[in-house]
Design a protein around this nucleic acid. Structure first.
Length: 744
DNA sequence: ACTAAACGCCTTTTT
DNA sequence: GGCGTTTAGT
């Protein structure tokens, strides 16, 4: 038997050694999913069934793609060049670039990230004079992306009422604008490529005969369009090897469709689903918690993880009074874990939403613990970086209106709203780009009409001071032109360098009080360009800019060091750590309030919780707070229902250290373990119930509504009433005289 | 006419 | 805390 296969368990081996046919592998968390995928590829190559050239592998993040490649290289002494690996978006980009003409795109087409897209939409809405109360830009963005996800162009969307008609109108203008500027958004990458394959038989057959093996990681997270793309790309001779876990589907909000697994089974005539259920990652208690929790979901494909390891440690639960205390608790535990010899990089702090990271970061910073934040404000999404990228985009293609508008007056160079609107109007009238309009304004176009145009303009806008306008605009035009000229034959890092200095960005941030971080980031951009030149096959500016759009999250300053890992639960998927801290387990936060209205929202939140739990190998901390500062307001919360879905016997409740002297107690808890912990804490503080007046933040139990927390107090004596937020019954005002509230 | 400071707004998760 | 819009100042 091949040495590749000998290290696998029977199910893994079966999957890896499958003959040339499509297959679906249902792989639980920590069951060796990536291992199966990479070994399969290595096996295909080693046994001569495929060459790297004939393999296409789709992953969900760029990180995963890199990981996959490095693991394959470790198994086989071959170069993986020729193999196509990457995200759906990355692969589509690659293919579109190779066939830009067939796809109707300029060679240097640029990619809009979500923020760019939103900016374009806002601009359009403004120019159309749309009512932004009735048509918020976000909603328009959502509408457009959804339509694209459905595979629909503006002309194809069914307009059944005025509202939709309006939306479609925006969509249409947006489409035209993007085409004019030669930019594509994320959804467009997929749709364009789908249309290309659909329409163009030559291209389609080319790739069909080339890629006889397609492997898909995280299949449960594919969207409808992505699935349709796969189906189009896979010919009769193609074996599609899909690996996924329906319990870890956490991207429904961006179109992921677990139903694809069932469709895949049918469309690709899958005879047998291989299930990987042995978990090699976590100890028993952690796995039991995850299994019990996820059983509350309906419609699962069914799967139960088991481990050959022992139960391990109990799951530690901590109830903090405030988010501040929660962070302090995490810091303490991290310190002692480190003292026990656990590397910081083997500890993760997970949270539901990015906003939660700040308190944690603050505490870690003060404790001088090195940490690294993933996601959140990504490197390529920082404003100074976006400014810099905008200049680079203009160097690559000055017709990029979006980029131009971003930096035309940044740093300030005397181009105000007035003159901008003018140039924009001109551009619209002529159907050209803003850049072209600017060139004309400055009399820089030798073309036939330029002179008369310029004069006509000046007359039209007689009320303005044309000289002044021209001055600012002209300065900008000269700047961009000179940058383009100088950078034409410069290597990429020097282009960046030159741009940073001459655009005035460096000067601007040097002069700013709080500009140090930004300067550092800009400097890091030069480094990013340098390493890009070393790694990429094509190191042109255009490809670098694409890289920046598609891999916004990958790059970060200060890698290398042993540091604590901070990230959202979403970005933790696929990773594992010795110890995991999951913070903010509160109703409204996790599960998040916004998920309540969405169909299947709660179940998705639960899968998210499942993902979080299964990241831990050895130790797992769950924490929640009674009050939390969020968006500048204090919120009072009750513990997450997910805590109650974990069996009590797996949990160990921790107490604030300063209370320890009271305690013989490993406290005994009532059936709901939750209120128990709090009782304990309160009793050690103020035993007297008379002394504890009703106060905001107080946890209470109501006979009918169950547990809740006081969020507001009002009145005295007989009129005294409190506003209580209940877990199940919502928020209510209660008269203290009548409502039988019990302090919890 | 342009800039900078001040105010009110929103804030889930990501390619 | 960041954003876009409004306002006051040059």
């Amino acid at each position: 038997m091949s040495s590749l296969l000998s290290a696998l368990n029977p199910e893994q081996r079966e999957a890896v050694a499958l003959p040339h046919q499509s297959a679906l592998v249902l792989a639980g968390a920590g069951s060796g999913k990536t291992r199966v995928l990479t070994t399969r590829i290595a096996h295909l190559i080693q046994s001569g069934q495929a060459s790297p050239h004939g393999i296409l592998a789709v992953t969900f993040t760029n990180k995963a793609a890199k990981e996959m490649l490095s693991r394959i290289s470790a198994m086989l002494p071959i170069n993986t060049r020729g193999m196509w690996t990457g995200t759906f978006h990355g692969l589509c980009n690659r293919m579109l670039r190779a066939h830009h003409q067939d796809a109707g795109l300029p060679q240097t087409f640029q990619i809009l990230d979500s923020a760019d897209q939103l900016a374009v939409i806002k601009r359009i809405l403004k120019s159309l004079g749309a009512d932004d109360e009735k048509f918020p830009a976000r909603q328009v963005q959502w509408f457009i992306n959804n339509a694209k996800e459905e595979g629909l162009r503006a002309s194809q969307v069914e307009t059944y009422d005025d509202f939709v008609r309006k939306m479609v109108e925006f969509y249409l203008v947006y489409e035209q604008q993007c085409n004019k500027e030669g930019v594509v958004d994320f959804a467009e990458l997929l749709l364009r490529n789908y249309e290309l394959l659909h329409r163009n038989e030559i291209v389609r057959e080319h790739y069909r005969s080339r890629f006889r093996h397609i492997l898909v990681d995280e299949f449960q997270d594919t969207s409808r369009l992505q699935y349709k793309w796969l189906r189009l790309l896979a010919g009769e001779q193609t074996a599609v090897f899909a690996v996924g876990d329906d319990d870890q589907s956490i991207y429904a909000f961006r179109g992921a469709n677990t139903g694809n697994m069932k469709e895949f089974e049918r469309d690709f005539r899958i005879s047998k689903i291989i299930k990987l259920e042995q978990n090699y990652r976590s100890h028993g208690n952690i796995l039991d918690a995850a299994n019990t929790l996820i059983r509350n979901n309906s419609g699962r494909l069914g799967k139960n993880l088991w481990t050959a390891e022992g139960h391990g440690e109990p799951i530690r639960v901590y109830n903090a009074p405030t988010d501040f205390d929660e962070a302090a608790f995490v810091v303490d535990e991290v310190k002692s874990l480190r003292a026990e010899g656990v590397a910081l990089s083997q500890m993760a702090l997970l949270y539901r939403s990015n906003a939660q990271s700040r308190v944690l970061e603050h505490a870690l910073f003060n404790a001088s613990l090195p940490y690294r934040v993933y996601g959140g404000m990504r490197f390529f999404e920082r404003q100074e970086i976006k400014h810099a990228l905008a200049y680079l985009r203009l160097i690559a293609n000055p017709d990029d209106d979006n980029a131009l508008l971003r930096v035309v007056n940044f740093p300030a160079r005397g181009i105000g709203m007035r003159s901008l609107e003018q140039v924009q109007d001109d551009a619209r009238r002529q159907g050209g780009s803003i850049w072209e309009a600017m060139l004309q304004k400055c009399g820089r176009v030798p073309a036939s009409t330029s002179e008369t145009e310029g004069n006509a303009q000046a007359r039209l806008d007689g009320s303005m001071a044309p000289d002044k306008i021209k001055k600012g605009v002209e300065g900008f035009v000269v700047l961009i032109e000179s940058m383009r000229r100088v950078c034409e034959n410069l290597p990429l890092p020097e282009v960046v360098d030159h741009m940073l200095e001459h655009s005035g960005l460096l000067g601007h941030y040097r002069a700013e009080r709080e500009g140090a971080d930004r300067l550092e980031n800009l400097n890091e951009l030069v480094n990013a360009a340098t390493s890009f030149v070393h790694e990429a096959e094509d190191d042109s500016l255009t490809v670098f800019l694409n890289h920046a759009s598609l891999e916004a999250g990958e790059h970060q300053a200060g890698g290398g060091e042993d540091a604590l890992q901070l990230m959202t639960v979403h970005s933790a998927k696929g990773l594992e750590f010795h110890s995991v801290f999951l913070s903010g387990l509160e109703e409204g936060l996790f599960p998040h309030d916004n998920s309540r209205n969405e169909a299947g929202g709660l179940e998705e939140e639960r899968r998210l919780m499942y993902v979080a739990l299964t990241r831990a190998r050895r130790r797992l901390y769950l924490s929640f707070t009674q009050s939390r500062m969020l968006h500048g307001q204090t919120r009072y919360n009750i513990p997450s229902r997910f805590l109650q879905e974990i069996p009590d016997n797996l949990l160990k409740w921790l107490q604030p250290v300063q209370k320890a002297r009271f305690g013989s107690q490993q406290p005994e808890f009532r059936s709901s373990g939750l209120s128990g912990a709090r009782t304990q804490i309160q009793e050690s503080g103020t035993q007297d119930s008379a002394a504890t007046r009703w106060r905001v933040g107080q946890n209470v139990v109501h006979a009918k509504f169950g547990p809740g927390v006081i969020v507001n107090c009002e009145g005295r004596g007989a009129d005294a009433r409190v506003e209580v937020k209940f877990g199940r019954a919502g928020t209510k005002w209660l008269l203290l005289e009548y409502a039988k509230l019990i302090p919890a």
